[in-house]
Structures are given as structure tokens and as C-alpha cells.
Design a protein around this nucleic acid. Structure first.
Length: 262
DNA sequence: ATGGTTGCGAGGCAA
């Protein structure tokens, strides 16, 4: 069987229902993982998605902040969530397809502005969150698993518009990259996007604050698709739908896609 | 070094 998977930080699923529907109609992924839904689960506009064939939804929500959801054309079973670093936030949910493949949808904490846990509690929480992910993967050793989401870190030099200028900017500091790499290695995860597209600058997020995001192109690759070692060779056709960043009332993130033949 | 924009929800906080 083959299925296409997408991940998108939507920055309010209710405000952006129209562009979610546009993506579902134009690109028709089998599964769409959303982050930053900013909505209680019962207020997610599920009916609109269901009308396009996405009749399965697994979600965790809270009022105003965070929130993750998995929309699927394929039957998918809720297999729970983890509250890493005990933040009490809706930042993770997992679902299992009928073929046994588990999909983890993550929204890693952004970490605030100052990359120093002594003066910025949020930065410490981000590092702790990543450390607890590492410990969990070390204990569980994920198999037949896919991890997607807004990990809020651009790990490679070519994942940001200027490595040098972002070394002290939260999302690209060496300590964050080390924590992310440790989590990735502990789970034996392969970065599917970079396995498919190994060369060149690659971004999935552009700030709202830039005057002309497209021309300035000061992006970062914060959104990721990983596969466990046993299914890494099944992944192909990775792509980022950059055009979605320019749609009406856009999210500041663009959706990331991959296809799996399993 | 600062400010730049957006969403939620009604003043800041978070991103």
C-alpha cells in the first residue's frame, strides 16, 4: 500500500479552515497532521474536512494555544499522547493505521526569545521536552513509525537563510540542534525530507514580520518528517508546498509532504 | 539593538 502524508503548522485551524480545504482538494494527501490548531477539539471544523473524505480525526486541543490533529482518509486508531516535560500542553498525539504504522504528530515548544535557560524558562522547557523525547525513544525504540511535526528547530546549516546570523537565535542554536539530534539518534529516526532532498537551502517557515517573505526568503526548516529505520526506504517524493505560504490569510508555515510505499 | 506581524480574546502573551 502507498499513502501520502503531510504536516502543517496551521496557526489556528478555525481561522484557516478555507486554506486547509484548499490543500486537501489540490494536493489530496491521505493524511494531514496539523499543529497549533489553537482550538478545543470539539470546535475543530471537522465536518468540512469529513465532506472531502477525511472522515477520521484524532486530536488533542486546548483553548487558544497549541493543539495537534491528524486528519485521515484512512482508518486510524488513537494510540494516545505524551505530556513531555509535564507542561500540560496539547503538543503530541499518535495514531495507528490498519497496517500497524504509527504516526506521531508533535508540536515542540518554540522556546521563547532568549537562548538561555537561566533567564528564560521557556528555553529550558524546550530543551527538557527534547530530552524527554530522547529518553522515550531510547526506551521504546520506535518501529514501523513516522514522526512529523513542527519541531521548532532547523538543524542544518542549509536549513536556515544564514547559519552565521542565526547561531544565537532560538531555533538554530547549537544546544538545540544537539538536543534534537540526540532525540533523532535515540529513536533511530531518518530525516525523510533531507534523505530525499539532500542538497541546497530548504525552508518550511517564513516570519510574518518580513516585508516581502518571498523576495527576502529568510526562511527556516522547522517542520519535519522522520521515519523509523525499518521503513525509511519506503519514503520518497518529499516536497514542501511553498506556494501555500502565499495563500489568502496564510499560516507562517508551509506544508511538508512525503509518500510511503509499504 | 530594535522592531517588525499575527492569533486569541479583549490586555498582554505567545509565536
Amino acid at each position: 500500500m502507498s499513502f501520502t502524508l503531510a504536516t502543517w503548522n496551521i496557526n489556528s485551524v478555525r481561522l484557516r479552515e478555507p486554506i486547509v480545504l484548499k490543500l486537501l482538494q489540490e494536493e489530496a494527501p491521505d493524511i494531514l497532521c496539523l499543529q497549533e490548531c489553537k482550538s478545543p477539539v470539539e470546535k475543530i471544523p471537522f465536518e468540512g474536512f469529513a465532506a472531502l473524505g477525511y472522515t477520521h480525526m484524532i486530536a488533542r486541543g486546548q483553548k487558544g494555544y497549541n493543539g495537534v490533529a491528524i486528519l485521515s482518509k484512512l482508518p486510524i486508531r488513537d494510540v494516545g499522547d505524551k505530556d513531555f516535560a509535564l507542561l500540560g500542553h496539547a503538543r503530541h498525539v499518535a495514531g495507528a493505521l490498519e497496517n500497524g504504522v504509527v504516526i506521531h504528530n508533535f508540536y515542540v515548544p518554540a522556546g521563547g526569545d532568549v537562548p538561555d535557560r537561566e533567564v528564560n524558562v521557556k528555553f529550558g522547557q524546550k530543551l527538557d521536552y527534547l530530552t524527554e523525547m530522547r529518553d522515550w525513544f531510547r526506551a521504546e525504540r520506535p518501529q514501523k513509525s513516522i514522526l512529523v511535526g513542527d519541531l521548532n528547530i532547523a538543524p542544518r546549516e542549509d536549513d536556515v537563510w544564514s547559519h552565521k546570523q542565526l547561531l544565537k537565535v532560538v531555533s538554530h542554536t547549537p544546544v538545540e540542534v544537539e538536543h534534537l539530534n540526540n532525540a533523532q539518534e535515540a529513536g533511530g529516526w531518518t530525516d525523510v525530507t533531507r534523505a530525499d532532498i539532500p542538497d541546497g537551502q530548504l525552508y518550511s517557515w517564513w516570519s510574518y514580520r518580513a516585508k516581502d517573505w518571498d523576495a527576502a526568503d529568510k526562511g527556516r526548516r522547522l517542520d519535519h518528517i522522520w521515519a523509523s529505520d525499518d521503513i525509511k526506504s519506503a519514503a520518497h517524493s518529499s516536497r514542501i508546498i511553498r506556494a501555500a505560504r502565499g495563500w489568502e490569510k496564510p499560516s507562517d508555515h508551509a506544508p511538508v509532504f512525503a509518500t510511503f510505499d509499504l
